[in-house]
Design a protein around this nucleic acid. Structure first.
Lengths: 237, 237
DNA sequence: CGCCTCCGCTTTGGATACAATCTTGTTCTA
DNA sequence: TAGAACAAGATTGTATCCAAAGCGGAGGCG
């Protein structure tokens, strides 16, 4: 593999933090962490600097890195921005989207239809549907031909519990409605109706944020107390 | 000072790249660079990792960091996003902006009036006016109470020749019109007219992007050829 | 009794040394 | 002569070592 030790530790740490393995406020002891990850402190430190730039950890000179805590308002704010950015992506994409990209969107929508047609949402169908969902959104952003949108929306996923990694929609009705949004967005893009595509996408993302905040709120409020911990359950493979 | 060597080299490098000291495509030889900056390779490397995360340099494993080139489309795209984000900031700020923040905006506008009332733009007034301009925009973003907007707009400044550091408006008419936008935006915010504030800000930023692209376009097109260079004119203070 | 200082320990930051990878120029072969 | 293989040098990536800055507790002083 052409990947360096720094990159892999950054990725592992990012995953761990995003899935909530470290309580917010945890101060990351470099020696222990490095040992746990099986690397030296040097690559760990540059990885941490990167995560700090992404806002996942905070840094204080000579005092190290601590896991950042997010509250509900941060998540709400993230979706506020995301709704606007993805709406903008739709507006920009509408006049310039290619046939190939439309085909890809169509495929996402059709395969989603197939999954949802069962009437219930099989737990094992969740991962595939999630993938389709991600591809749908990413394709539109790609079609907008604005690399900044892509970058910023991705950063917006750098929030524990709020990324696409976790899917909080057990409710079939909600997911069905959301999928229906995709149908309409695709049609608007196909007909070049930029404004309609933007409005649909804005509501689509805004509502997803509402649902997520509702689901996630009770889990967060009590995790704000700063905790000091440096242990890790690393199963080195 | 409580700043570490890594932070200062990151800042210095960021400045140098933003002001165009390194032609795009320049391969940043770590040993030479570190020596030029008077630090070892360790802090330099973490600084570079940070800049890579900001998109100022690109990284390839085992092949080092190279200065990224931006073309006119990248700049245009940045302003597209910025116009929307700052517009959003206005929309969010309108209903919740505080009296203190309105006062700050008023002060920016009034002091700007004083500077521009001369009828011509003194070169030595340019820096102060630039500062007022930055404060005006930052205050509104702060008033939006959405930290993501602040972060993303700042990232949007990470483009050589396109940040607020350089002011390309020699034209008094343009700067005067832009300042007049500030007047109107402030009034809209004061009266809680979110939509109007958003529309004004959108046009304000979009036009600034147009002007900048026009000024900067000829300087960029010919700098795209990848150059290999590692020398630095460092005057260590 | 409370606060302040000092000293040792812990932890982080930076420099150097070493390993791994890439680059380049040369030589050998088809 | 073109191209591939190889080897030496250069360059990056990682580990280790040392310095400097925080932290905490013991002891002294008001």
């Amino acid at each position: 593999m052409a990947t360096t030790s720094t990159q892999s530790t950054a990725e592992i740490l990012r995953e761990k933090i995003l899935e909530g393995a470290f309580p917010p406020g945890t101060i990351l002891r470099q020696d222990a962490l490095a040992q746990g990850l099986g690397v030296s402190r040097t690559p760990l430190r540059t990885a941490l600097a990167e995560l700090a730039r992404d806002g996942l950890v905070t840094y204080e000179a000579n005092r190290g890195y601590t896991v950042r805590g997010f509250n509900v308002d941060d998540i709400r704010a993230a979706f506020e921005v995301r709704a606007n950015l993805e709406g903008l992506a739709c507006r920009l994409a509408a006049p310039r989207i290619t046939e190939a990209q439309l085909d890809r969107l169509q495929r996402c929508v059709s395969e989603g239809d197939a999954i949802l047609s069962k009437g219930i949402l099989d737990p094992e169908d969740l991962a595939p549907y999630r993938r389709l969902n991600v591809e749908f959104h990413e394709t539109i952003i790609e079609a907008s031909a604005n690399p900044w949108i892509s970058d910023f929306v991705n950063r917006t996923h750098n929030v524990p519990l709020a990324s696409d990694r976790v899917f909080h929609w057990e409710d079939h009705a909600i997911i069905f409605r959301s999928h229906n949004d995709h149908h309409r967005i695709l049609r608007a893009l196909r007909t070049g109706d930029a404004m309609r595509a933007e409005a649909l996408m804005w509501e689509h993302v805004t509502y997803a944020g509402d649902v997520l905040v509702e689901h996630v709120a009770p889990k967060i409020t009590d995790r704000q107390a700063p905790v000091t911990l440096q242990s890790m359950d690393t199963e080195t493979p």
